[in-house]
């Protein structure tokens, strides 16, 4: 039972790792509800010039020895990811992720050859996405 009890020092300063193994950043804060005395989540420092990310307790899989393991890939991870069609044609980069009830429904993509001052954006529904790995790969060939 002694091993099941950890302190804030055991959590703050550790890396936050998503289910794909990606290291998101370092845990900088622990949030506690003063009424229920329960941990409500953690704040992760994503790096220089990036805003901090709050991760709710429901998305934490495990407080590990050297890292905090999450059970969900945060939408933040997909921003600025390269988007390519199934045949390798580069479409652009992810600008934003549209969520509904914490589920990704759509990606907003900046076209690869976007002209200055142009507001053209692609809105790609999740049904057209084949895989999200190192890049976002679409199901179909797409003519930009």
């Amino acid at each position: 039972m002694k091993e099941a009890i950890i302190t804030a020092d055991d959590i703050v300063g550790k890396e936050a790792v998503d289910p794909h193994g990606a290291v998101l950043g370092v845990v900088v804060k622990l949030h506690i509800d003063t009424r229920s005395k329960q941990i409500t989540g953690i704040t992760v420092d994503l790096g220089f010039l990036k805003p901090d990310l709050f991760v709710g307790i429901d998305y934490i899989h495990h407080f590990g020895v050297d890292a905090v393991l999450l059970n969900k890939v945060p939408a933040e991870r997909f921003r600025n990811m390269r988007v390519i069609a199934v045949d390798g044609t580069e479409i652009g980069h992810v600008k934003d992720v549209v969520l509904e009830d914490s589920v990704i429904t759509q990606l907003t993509v900046i076209p690869l050859h976007k002209k200055a001052f142009s507001k053209v954006l692609y809105h790609i529904p999740v049904s057209e996405i084949k895989e999200i790995g190192a890049s976002v790969i679409l199901r179909k060939e797409m003519t930009p």
């Binding site: 390519i84 390798g88 895989e131 999200i132 790995g133 190192a134 890049s135 976002v136």
Partner: peptide, 10 residues
């Protein structure tokens, strides 16, 4: 020509 892996890695 660019080469991408199956997961989109360049």
């Amino acid at each position: 020509r660019k080469v991408f892996s199956t997961s989109g890695l360049f």
